[in-house]
Amino acid sequence: MGKVLVLNQDYSALSICTAPKAFLLVYMNKAELLAESPDSYLRTVRDRYPMPVVIRLHRYIHLPYRGVVLTRHNIFKRDRNRCQYCGTHEHLTLDHVLPKSRGGQTSWDNLSTACKRCNSKKGDLTPEEAGMPLLQRPFRPSFLMFIRDCTDLAPAEWQPYLGVKSRVYH
């Protein structure tokens, strides 16, 4: 089943859920259907219903700051599954831009995707010392930016609610 973008009452992106969960929220009048799939439906024995793609909650949900969890998988997504030194998509690992042995932290701003070859070549040096410039400096993605730019989930129907794509490369 497809994924559905859930918007808060003010149209800000809140989360992603499954189509059956979104349908249930709409059916129970807790949300409204803003966009539906043109060629997919949810079926019961007697009826068929539009497959939700975007819903908006009727009640505003107050959430504290929502950041993207720092995981290996999310760093690979942020870096589009490519080595930030040579651009390959194969044999990927994580690299501490400033090596841990030299005080580098395990953080969004210091972790980058690297292939095994480049990671080994860089070793215990900084990119500058190794003569290996990064394609993109590491950064902490916002929740909205992560949904918009770093996932394969975002169908065209989500774009009006996620804003214009703008990716900053350093």
Rank of each mutant, 00 (worst) to 15 (best):
R102K: 02
R102E: 01
R102N: 02
R102M: 00
R102C: 01
R102G: 00
R102Q: 00
G103V: 08
G103P: 09
G103I: 11
G104M: 05
G104E: 07
Q105V: 14
Q105E: 14
Q105A: 14
T106L: 03
T106Y: 08
T106D: 13
S107R: 15
S107G: 09
S107Q: 11
S107H: 14
S107K: 11
W108E: 09
W108V: 12
W108R: 12
D109G: 12
D109L: 14
D109A: 15
D109W: 09
N110W: 05
N110L: 08
N110S: 11
N110F: 04
L111F: 06
L111G: 05
L111M: 09
L111Q: 06
L111D: 00
L111T: 04
S112R: 10
S112G: 11
S112F: 04
S112Y: 06
S112H: 09
T113M: 07
T113W: 07
A114G: 02
A114L: 00
A114T: 02
A114E: 00
A114F: 05
A114M: 01
A114W: 00
C115R: 05
C115Q: 03
C115T: 01
C115S: 07
C115D: 04
C115H: 04
K116T: 14
K116Y: 14
R117P: 00
R117K: 12
R117S: 07
R117L: 08
R117N: 07
R117D: 03
C118W: 01
C118Y: 01
C118S: 06
C118T: 03
S120C: 10
S120M: 07
K121G: 08
K121P: 05
K122I: 10
K122T: 13
K122M: 12
K122D: 10
K122Y: 11
K122E: 12
K122G: 07
G123K: 07
G123I: 02
G123M: 06
G123W: 03
G123F: 02
G123S: 09
D124A: 01
D124K: 00
D124M: 01
D124C: 03
D124E: 08
D124H: 05
L125E: 05
L125Y: 06
L125M: 15
L125D: 03
T126V: 13
T126C: 08
T126A: 09
P127H: 08
P127I: 08
P127A: 11
P127W: 07
E129D: 09
E129K: 06
E129I: 02
E129M: 08
E129A: 11
E129S: 06
A130P: 01
A130H: 00
A130C: 08
A130I: 02
A130T: 01
A130M: 03
G131L: 13
G131P: 13
G131V: 11
G131R: 15
G131M: 14
M132N: 07
P133N: 06
P133G: 02
P133H: 04
P133Y: 04
P133V: 05
